[in-house]
């Protein structure tokens, strides 16, 4: 019952969530629809305007942030609302449950990015696109987004009322630094200014550090909130 069993548990929780999600498509539907509708609204509103790359980078991350916030809480809220959380508590190590849920949310964020970012690049094409840099930002920023949101989801899932509004309020300040850094890095990926490129590369390190620190902290704290 060592590490091996822990990995099996984390994988089982991930697979179970994936299976449930593919049957209901609740989170995926919410997140994708949010991303696409905001994208349409933004591009329609800006159809005749010339938009600087800074603004485009900010818009991209605002769309990603709010799309993520509309669906990432489901992993824990579903368990608590359906009453399935207690048996999960009794059956698997807390950190393995968290790992499975985190993995699922990372997958969800990547799925949203895969759909909405290409659409974004078509609808609001930036002057140039440094694909390597953009991919790095989306990868690391996505992991960061999922890591903080998953922990906050575990917190608010146990609240008595108003969970979705609470999720926005509670997750937003934690995600603010991530989004600001990610926007700054995306600016570097969207224009040809050398200084922005250099800065964006430093920002990638910062994004990786953010994900690392927030994930480590959530693993340390999760046990205290998962078990009463």
């Amino acid at each position: 019952m060592g590490l091996n069993h822990w990995i099996i548990c984390a994988k089982s929780v991930f697979r179970k969530d994936l299976q449930v999600e593919l049957r209901t498509r609740y989170a995926l539907g919410a997140v994708l629809l949010f991303a696409i509708t905001t994208l349409i609204a933004v591009s329609a509103a800006l159809s005749s305007a010339t938009v600087k790359s800074e603004v485009k980078a900010a818009l991209l991350w605002i769309i990603l942030l709010f799309a993520a916030l509309s669906g990432l809480a489901r992993v824990f809220v579903r368990e608590e609302e359906a009453g399935t959380a207690p048996l999960l508590r009794l059956s698997a190590p807390a950190t393995a449950v968290y790992a499975g849920k985190l993995l699922f949310n990372v997958a969800l964020v990547f799925a949203v990015e895969c759909v909405s970012v290409p659409l974004f690049l078509v609808v609001l094409p930036p002057a140039t696109v440094n694909f390597g840099l953009l991919l790095g930002v989306l990868l690391l920023g996505g992991i960061g987004l999922a890591s903080s949101s998953t922990f906050v989801a575990a917190l608010i899932a146990q609240a008595s009322s108003g969970k979705s509004a609470l999720f926005f309020i509670v997750a937003f300040p934690i995600l603010l630094p991530l989004v600001l850094i990610a926007v700054q890095a995306t600016v570097g990926a969207f224009d040809a200014i050398d200084m922005h490129h250099v800065r964006a590369q430093a920002d990638l390190g910062l994004l990786a550090l953010y994900s690392l620190v927030m994930t480590t902290t959530s693993f340390l704290l999760f046990e205290y909130i998962w078990h009463d």
Partner: peptide
Amino acid sequence: APEIQLYGELTGDENLAFFARLLA
């Protein structure tokens, strides 16, 4: 217990198999 629920989106077999894996 009444407040301990199983996954409605999974079949009975899948529920049992899921918890069997968790419990080794």
